[in-house]
Computed example of a mutant assay.
Amino acid sequence: MDTRRLQLLLALSRLGSMRAVAEAHHLTTSTVSQQIAALARDAGTDLVEPKGRRVRLTPAGRRLSDHAVTILAAVEAARVDLDPDAEPAGTLRVGGFATGIRVSLLPVLADLADTHPRVDAIVSEYEPVEAFRLLVDDDLDLALVYDYNLAPASLNPALDAVALWSTPWGLGVRADTTHGTTADLSDYADETWIVNSRNTADEAAVRTLAALTGFTPRIAHQIDSLDLVEDLILGGYGVGLLPLNRPTREGVSVLRLADPAVVMTAYAATRRGRESWAPLRVLLDGLCSVTGCAPPHRDWPRPAAADPPASR
């Protein structure tokens, strides 16, 4: 149904005559009558009936005029929502890994609550594989994800991404088993290895490191929480990758890796072309103002290591 015709029907229900509607909308009475008749054909039922020398809405016309209130309000809301110059308003669905949410997202949302109070956010924790799938399926508006330089993510053609920050990772071991600060991976060829339970990038990075050193890692434990990874290391159950700049509990050391180093990069990913939506645009602008990132693009650049703590 033509929204302009719905506007005229709604005006007729309120003003009571074709002449009054014509004057209010700067039309001729004949034009208003023709538009109401066309709307009746679209609806498949009579919308007006004679009442003396004037007309009145039929029961169907009154019901349609009631619907017109909701329909026209929704159309106006959609217009404002899609207007890049309008005041941002709406609910953002954001998903991502814990540290990305904690370090990059929450400070921006706190600022948006003051600067753009009509922008809300629903936040859920997901590992990159899960977040990418939800983003492609249009179940998220923005995903905070990560990859490693030794296990780069492959960006779906439907998505754009911007790098937020990078941080180096090292090898987590029991402190009483080492005396240096740099790991010689050949010393850990016979160790049991711990990887992430919900993201394959950790295992891919471990296998690449091991292959470059000349051994095949024995992977036995799959753990999501880095605190639990530390528990396993302290218990003597294995070794695993941990961020270098994350404080660890007593008894755990994180050794530097060299040739090659392991660097984790965090990204903000969106569906391609969606960044012009006002609420999403202000969120992306906020993320980039905090991290110094560039506008969204389709590549996966890796900036120099930054300070934010990295954990899954």
Rank of each mutant, 00 (worst) to 15 (best):
residue 218 R to A: 03
residue 142 L to Y: 05
residue 188 Y to A: 06
residue 195 V to F: 15
residue 182 T to E: 06
residue 131 A to F: 06
residue 169 W to K: 06
residue 170 G to P: 00
residue 196 N to S: 09
residue 154 S to F: 06
residue 162 V to P: 01
residue 161 A to F: 11
residue 186 S to I: 10
residue 224 D to N: 10
residue 222 Q to C: 12
residue 162 V to E: 13
residue 131 A to S: 09
residue 223 I to H: 06
residue 158 A to G: 08
residue 175 A to P: 05
residue 180 G to Y: 08
residue 221 H to L: 08
residue 173 V to N: 05
residue 180 G to R: 09
residue 173 V to G: 01
residue 180 G to A: 11
residue 148 Y to A: 10
residue 135 L to T: 02
residue 224 D to Q: 14
residue 216 T to V: 13
residue 225 S to W: 12
residue 180 G to V: 00
residue 134 L to G: 03
residue 168 P to A: 14
residue 199 N to F: 15
residue 213 T to L: 07
residue 200 T to A: 09
residue 172 G to F: 10
residue 208 T to C: 04
residue 203 E to R: 04
residue 223 I to G: 00
residue 173 V to S: 05
residue 193 W to T: 07
residue 229 V to I: 14
residue 150 L to D: 13
residue 185 L to C: 09
residue 149 N to K: 01
residue 166 S to R: 10
residue 208 T to N: 08
residue 221 H to D: 15
residue 171 L to P: 00
residue 181 T to N: 13
residue 200 T to N: 05
residue 182 T to S: 02
residue 170 G to V: 03
residue 211 A to Y: 09
residue 134 L to R: 15
residue 194 I to T: 03
residue 131 A to G: 04
residue 230 E to S: 14
residue 158 A to V: 01
residue 154 S to V: 11
residue 145 V to W: 05
residue 206 V to C: 11
residue 182 T to H: 02
residue 171 L to M: 04
residue 148 Y to K: 06
residue 176 D to F: 03
residue 195 V to D: 08
residue 201 A to D: 12
residue 222 Q to H: 15
residue 139 D to G: 02
residue 212 L to C: 07
residue 184 D to S: 06
residue 159 L to P: 00
residue 176 D to T: 07
residue 173 V to D: 02
residue 167 T to I: 05
residue 150 L to M: 10
residue 186 S to K: 12
residue 182 T to I: 02
residue 148 Y to E: 13
residue 226 L to V: 04
residue 184 D to W: 06
residue 184 D to F: 06
residue 192 T to F: 14
residue 225 S to L: 13
residue 191 E to W: 13
residue 186 S to G: 12
residue 221 H to P: 02
residue 175 A to Y: 08
residue 203 E to I: 01
residue 160 D to L: 05
residue 140 L to G: 06
residue 212 L to M: 14
residue 162 V to K: 03
residue 153 A to V: 06
residue 132 F to T: 01
residue 167 T to W: 08
residue 216 T to L: 14
residue 220 A to R: 13
residue 227 D to N: 11
residue 150 L to F: 14
residue 225 S to I: 02
residue 165 W to N: 12
residue 148 Y to C: 06
residue 216 T to K: 14
residue 174 R to K: 00
residue 230 E to W: 08
residue 192 T to A: 15
residue 219 I to L: 08
residue 141 D to V: 00
residue 230 E to I: 03
residue 213 T to E: 04
residue 153 A to C: 02
residue 197 S to C: 01
residue 223 I to S: 03
residue 221 H to M: 00
residue 227 D to M: 05
residue 230 E to T: 03
residue 154 S to T: 06
residue 175 A to K: 04
residue 148 Y to F: 15
residue 219 I to K: 07
residue 160 D to V: 02
residue 131 A to N: 03
residue 177 T to D: 10
residue 197 S to G: 12
residue 216 T to S: 09
residue 168 P to H: 07
residue 196 N to A: 12
residue 203 E to V: 02
residue 173 V to Y: 11
residue 187 D to H: 12
residue 209 L to Y: 13
residue 147 D to R: 02
residue 134 L to C: 09
residue 159 L to C: 01
residue 175 A to M: 05
residue 197 S to V: 01
residue 140 L to M: 03
residue 151 A to H: 01
residue 198 R to T: 14
residue 215 F to W: 11
residue 193 W to G: 11
residue 156 N to K: 07
residue 185 L to Q: 11
residue 213 T to R: 14
residue 202 D to V: 05
residue 179 H to D: 12
residue 230 E to D: 08
residue 169 W to P: 01
residue 172 G to W: 09
residue 187 D to V: 00
residue 192 T to W: 13
